[in-house]
Design a protein around this nucleic acid. Structure first.
Lengths: 302, 302
DNA sequence: CAAAAGTGGTGCATTTTATGCACCGGTAGG
DNA sequence: CCTACCGGTGCATAAAATGCACCACTTTTG
């Protein structure tokens, strides 16, 4: 789209932090780029960048402009997909920011199922923690966010939510594997492996432990849910995750037990979009479908 | 804005119905304009106009595109005003589609008061019947609509509403001028002047009359509320309007009487905008102010 | 303290792009 | 059949964007 060229250049300058660097990135001379920026500022009626000795930076007006640019580009794509849609074939692209728990089973399965029916639709799956996910929506980097216990909730429009109690995973020969009701204090007495501080599950465990006047003492702390799932089979210890990221696997037997909601309040998984945004056809459809699936209950019986 | 030129050209072609006519309007050769359209269609990935022997017409894809264009332009203006706003001076333009009743007193007074505080803000006041007003919002021709008893209400987001009972106006020496409670049947017994069929007040009177098994028999029928207000002082007859368009004027004494709500249900005046649209700063502010004024009751004691 | 390596900004020749002109083929209506 | 429109196209020309060489300035570096 030719007429959006200037917009892309502005975004490049913003990314690069300097006109010369951006010019290289976009295969232009600094002089040409410089004049495009100047011309835009003249037409727009206000400076967009503040000139610093070491480069340029967006000023408040520029922040508004770049937000406008992103929304315009996204809108144009939406219209294009809408047009493609009315000419028959359903195509488009869906970008999703999601928590780690969605990676092993849920999202791969649902995306594959969707693509079977709509091969013209492509996907981006971006792993983001809950803060980043919402930020992604705001910059139009992702169309949808599927996150456990998001933080801000401003500019986050909830499309659906389902309860996800914190769940303990352990090897079948673990002493707690046969216990009836699992309490947090029991878990903390055994060796355990925990996600990093910024992960929601960790945050909930810490809060609840503190309420019980207990402290956590993880033998391993990791960013990766996948690591946790594998580690509890190596060393005899407890892992913590949410049900949607777990599945019975005959090849690797494991025991899953919900922690009593008396100890840790039940968290929620949220599907959401940027507040007020009209999603392109494909993301809107996929979101509807996810909502139906989530609300009708998941298949993995954990 | 240079980069929107193609968009304006597309709008011109749509208006003119032919590339050649549009080219004249926009001071271009038909050839140049033709190629711009073609280039846009190529970049966009789909035809926008269907070529007819006598000219061109938007196809469904084109309808989507032109809607997008209008929203783009309006958004850009919004951003520009927002920028102007954060640099101190409040400026911008407010376009209002309104019913006739707002013309004599309410809107002139409120606009003047607003402009006293914000001289940088300019206004367009467009008289529209209730159907046209909503259409104006949809095409971004107007930011706000202030109409009595709108029709569709889809894509019409209500910002506030106030009751406006149908009111009879007459010369002080009219036989009904001293009557306690005014019923519709009494009115229909006397000569009366009515607005045209498409006007809401007329529609309400007709409906109520029909319910009483009565018919209207206007001695004069007119599009103009102003004409009605003046005519009832010439010939001894009854006029019908809503309170916001009426005001006690010592120079031209007139009697106003509400019709009993037992006969004609109380109608409402609505302030609204296009559903889902983020208004530019100035219209948003003015709408807030109108809402406050309307809800706190009007000053003219009719 | 001075040289070097950055930065944004500008005049001018050059290249790329858009435009105007003259024309073609086709359809509608007299 | 003819006239009057319409959209579309080849080509020369006008306009706009770009690249190059350079300036003025600031920070970093030796």
């Amino acid at each position: 789209m030719k007429h959006l060229q200037t917009f892309f250049l502005i975004e490049a300058v913003n990314r690069a932090g300097s006109i010369r660097k951006a010019a290289e990135d976009m295969n232009l001379t600094a002089s040409a780029l410089n004049r495009r920026i100047q011309r835009f500022e003249a037409e727009f009626g206000s400076q967009i960048f503040e000139r610093l000795p070491r480069g340029v930076r967006l000023n408040p007006a520029g922040e508004l402009v770049i937000q406008h640019i992103r929304s315009q580009v996204s809108e144009l794509e939406r219209v294009q997909n809408q047009v493609a849609d009315l000419s028959g074939e359903r195509r488009g692209h869906i970008s999703i920011a999601c928590s780690q728990a969605l990676l092993p089973y849920f999202l791969p399965a649902e995306i594959a199922r969707y693509r079977e029916e709509h091969p013209g639709v492509s996907f981006s799956v971006n792993v983001r923690d809950r803060a980043q996910a919402e930020q992604d929506l705001g910059t139009f980097a992702s169309d949808l966010a599927l996150v456990f216990e998001p933080v801000h909730l401003v500019d986050f429009e909830i499309l659906c939510s389902i309860p996800q109690p914190v769940t303990v995973l352990m090897a079948p020969d673990h002493p707690l594997a046969t216990k009836e009701e699992l309490r947090l204090r029991d878990c903390l007495d055994y060796d355990h492996i925990l996600p990093s501080q910024h992960i929601a599950v960790r945050h909930m465990i810490e809060t609840s432990a503190h309420r019980l006047s207990r402290t956590t003492a993880p033998v391993v702390e990791t960013d990766s849910f996948e690591f946790i799932r594998h580690y509890v089979l190596q060393e005899k210890c407890l892992g913590f995750q949410i049900p949607i990221g777990l599945k019975e696997d005959p090849a690797r037997p494991m025991v899953y037990k919900k922690i009593s909601s008396k100890d840790i309040p039940i968290g929620h998984l949220f599907l959401g979009q940027l507040k007020g945004r009209t999603l392109p056809v494909a993301p809107a459809r996929f979101a509807l479908r996810l909502t139906a699936i989530l609300e009708n209950g998941l298949e993995n019986g954990v």
